[in-house]
């Protein structure tokens, strides 16, 4: 990549007001570094990934509202987590966390365990029990 070919496309980096560093060759064939504001092929990939996450969150939300799943799954998706990550944060086995996705099991959980989830998701107990109280 030549120095003047380093892409300067619009990207999500703009919101944080910073540019990333790329390596490119100058007129004399020497390597140098150039700041880049972004590149469309990867911005598209990132935006697609974020869209996918939003879809997953919305999907989980509907299932919770239909009483097919517990709020734990919704908050997990909201925080871009998957089962292994959530299990690691609450310090429980994966199968145990998965079991808590069942509304029946969730409704009988002791306060202590619910508090663990609430802390990890950074929500109040009321919000944990009722996802409609969760902002955005």
């Amino acid at each position: 990549m030549k120095k003047d070919e380093v892409p300067q496309d619009k990207s999500n980096l703009e919101s944080a007001n910073f540019k990333e560093l790329c390596y490119a060759v100058d007129e004399n064939g020497e390597y140098t570094t150039v700041n880049s504001s972004g590149w469309d092929p990867k911005t598209i990939a990132l935006n697609k990934a974020i869209e996918d996450i939003k879809e997953r969150v919305e999907d989980a939300k509907q299932r919770v509202l239909n009483n097919q799943s517990s709020p734990i799954e919704y908050y997990m998706e909201f925080h871009k987590m998957d089962l292994p990550i959530l299990a690691s944060y609450v310090g429980m086995w994966k199968w145990r966390v998965k079991r808590h996705f069942k509304p029946k099991v969730f409704n009988k959980l002791p306060k202590k365990i619910l508090q663990k989830y609430a802390d990890v998701f950074d929500v109040s107990m009321e919000q944990l029990n009722n996802i409609t109280l969760h902002g955005n």
Partner: peptide, 13 residues
Amino acid sequence: QIVRMQEEIGTGG
């Protein structure tokens, strides 16, 4: 995902 691993912040391109 392949493209992101290849190009996202950190690889220098």
